[in-house]
Structure formats: structure tokens, C-alpha cells
């Protein structure tokens, strides 16, 4: 298997029109081997004979429910299971009972949403992080270069190294670039606790970070304060 598109997928849903739609959606996105079943018994047969690499499973099927079918599949192979559910309660069961589903989508859903989640599930199973680990990003804020691999900053002022907390804050802000990141989630990323009691500490760290990345720390143009909420990293470029 070279990439996830080599995966053989089993699609189980009792509605033929939905099977046809999802099938064409999957084919369009690049999956080549797709088999489908309308009920539990046919799905069981196909699962043992065809040995699919991933299953998209409807929760309510005419001759049983998807949850118990998944448990049967789990006893045979470790193929990931993505649930399609048409009921609100299923969400609670999937979240609350920890049934071991790899992901779930509530109907109706957008094709892109299904494809993205399927990719994530298959990547997680067949191309885990170790293989998939990419280099950490290197990015520019104006003329300042930030390398998250070494945690170093190079600007006209010279080269600085980020402290652990500064690194955690900057990485969180970069992951959500152009978006407001609340003080709470920044503190959670750096100290593992929400904001309350850390406001001053957070402010001190942000000021130090600005001294390293901003040309004019007292008038920041990249690390913007959003009053009452948190901070925002803007103007990120890749070169």
C-alpha cells in the first residue's frame, strides 16, 4: 500500500441512493476499490471475504445496528470504522460510551467533510505519525525568519532562541494564524491551565516574544492583542 487511495473500502448503508452517492464521491476523490453492502449479513460476508481496509458504516441497519456489527469486525481485524449516523442520540452513544469508533459523521454531511475525515482516519491507521512526521514549519513575519525546528528567530536585530514557553505560545498562534486565540487556550498550551491567575505571566511572555519577533515591540504589527479575548498572529508568509 503506497497511499490511502489503495485502501479497499466497505460501505454499508441500507439506502441504495446514498450508497451510490457516497460511492461516486469516494471514486471522484481518488479511491479505487469500493465495495458496498445493504445490511449486516451481507456486510459480514464481504468483511471476511474481501478484507477491507476501512469501513463506512450506517448506525441503523435493517437487520441490526452498526455498533454491534463494528464490535464483530473489531474481533476480526483492526480496520478503522467511520460511522454515519442519522440520529442525535448516536452522537451521545459514540462520545459517551467510547465504543471505539474511529470517527463519526451525522447525516446530512458534505462530501468534502466525509472525504477529509476518511483521509484522517486512514492516515492515522496506515501511515502513522512516525512515518508521516514532517519537518516543522519555517515561516517569515516581514523580514524575520522563524524556524520552529530549532526554535530560532533570525532578524535584523540578530538571532534569538525561543524559551520553551515562548515556543509553545508561538506554535499555538502559528497553528491558528490569522485567527484569534483566546488567552485561555494560550495558557492551556503553555501551562496546562486556563487563563485565570496567569494573565500577568502571559502578558510578560508575550512582551518577550514581541521583543524577539516584532521590529517595533511597543507597536506590534504581527502579534496583535485582541482586547478582552486574546492574541492573533497576522502577516505570516512562507518566504
Amino acid at each position: 500500500m503506497n497511499d490511502i487511495f489503495d485502501c479497499k473500502l466497505l460501505l454499508v448503508d441500507d439506502e441504495p441512493e446514498l450508497r451510490r452517492m457516497v460511492g461516486s464521491m469516494l471514486r471522484q476523490s481518488g479511491f479505487k476499490k469500493i465495495i458496498s453492502a445493504a445490511d449486516c449479513s451481507h456486510a459480514r460476508l464481504l468483511f471476511t471475504s474481501e478484507k477491507p481496509d476501512g469501513v463506512i458504516l450506517d448506525v441503523s441497519l435493517p437487520d441490526g445496528d452498526g455498533f454491534s456489527l463494528m464490535r464483530e469486525f473489531r474481533s476480526i481485524s483492526g480496520a478503522p470504522v467511520l460511522f454515519l449516523s442519522a440520529r442525535d442520540e448516536d452522537e451521545n452513544r459514540l462520545l459517551g460510551l467510547g465504543l471505539g469508533a474511529d470517527d463519526y459523521i451525522t447525516k446530512p454531511f458534505l462530501p468534502r467533510e466525509l472525504i477529509l475525515r476518511l483521509h484522517a482516519v486512514l492516515n492515522r491507521t496506515y501511515f502513522p505519525v512516525v512515518l508521516n512526521q514532517k519537518e516543522k514549519p519555517v515561516f517569515y513575519l516581514g523580514k524575520t525568519m522563524i524556524d520552529l525546528n530549532s526554535g530560532s528567530i533570525t532578524s535584523v536585530k540578530g538571532t534569538f532562541t525561543l524559551t520553551a514557553k515562548e515556543y509553545a505560545l508561538l506554535e499555538k498562534l502559528f497553528d491558528n494564524k490569522e485567527k484569534i486565540v483566546t488567552g485561555d487556550s494560550l495558557c492551556l498550551a503553555a501551562w496546562g491551565d486556563p487563563l485565570y491567575g496567569y494573565e500577568n505571566t502571559l502578558m510578560v511572555h508575550i512582551r518577550r516574544l514581541r521583543e524577539k519577533i516584532e521590529p517595533e515591540p511597543s507597536d506590534p504589527e504581527f502579534l496583535i492583542t485582541v482586547r478582552g479575548l486574546g492574541y492573533k498572529l497576522v502577516g505570516v508568509t512562507s518566504s
Binding site: 452517492m21 442519522a86 462530501p111
Partner: peptide
């Protein structure tokens, strides 16, 4: 109400799915 919404969801998925495909 739960039953009706359950029954609407599957056909709605089909409409939404094809609309999504047509968009792209």
C-alpha cells in the same frame, strides 16, 4: 419528531452530497 428527522436525514444527505459534488 426524532423519527421524522431521522427519516429526512438520509435523503437530505443524498441531495447535499450531489450538490457538493456539482459545486466542485
Amino acid at each position: 419528531i426524532a423519527g421524522i428527522s431521522h427519516d429526512i436525514r438520509t435523503p437530505l444527505s443524498v441531495i447535499m452530497g450531489y450538490a457538493g459534488q456539482m459545486e466542485e
